[in-house]
């Protein structure tokens, strides 16, 4: 199968390496760096850190170009089609999920990327967060179907 061939797996590895490097270089692995962006109450006193906006902005520009390049191609290099989400509806699940994630993110300053990459540094209590995150994701998969094909079918 296509997704077990070496070029495919090497691409996944390269992407993971770039992603992890980016999380460290941008300091987004540091929960406090993230929280100091989310702390808008610190704007008047000058204690606000807008760095996260620069991370998102730069990442977005690069990915936007890649999506444009992809639009001109029938398929990616190592698979038969682009796995683009087809479900377009803005529903209660999307909003509700984003609200729950927003609360969790604001409580700890850790989104899923940094949560995983922090394994490299093993700060105290990380395993508690990781086990809970995995359990939450697993619980969620009983509420909503996983994968956009099943989601599409579920919406009909």
């Amino acid at each position: 199968m296509a997704n077990l061939r070496l070029p495919y797996l090497a691409t996944a590895a390269l992407s993971g390496l770039l992603f992890g490097s980016g999380l460290y270089v941008s300091q987004m692995v540091d929960p406090f760096k993230v929280l100091h962006f989310l702390d808008f109450g610190a704007i008047p006193s000058g204690g606000w850190d807008p760095s996260l906006a620069f991370v998102m902005g730069a990442a977005l520009i690069v990915m936007f170009v890649a999506v444009r390049i992809g639009r001109g191609r029938a398929a990616p290099l190592f698979d038969t089609s682009f796995h683009e989400p087809e479900y377009k509806k803005i529903d209660r699940r999307l909003i509700g999920g984003a609200v729950l994630f927003g609360i969790g993110w604001g409580m700890a300053g850790i989104c899923p990327g940094p949560a995983i990459s922090l394994i490299g540094f093993l700060p105290d209590n990380l395993w508690i967060f990781l086990v809970a995150m995995f359990a939450g994701s697993l619980a969620g998969s009983f509420i909503v179907p996983s994968g956009h094909a099943r989601r599409l079918a579920d919406a009909k």
Partner: peptide, 20 residues
Amino acid sequence: AALGGALIGLAAAVLWLGNG
């Protein structure tokens, strides 16, 4: 921040254009 962000964007670009 911008350099790290560009690396994250590149990671996303590689996975998208390579494996879709």
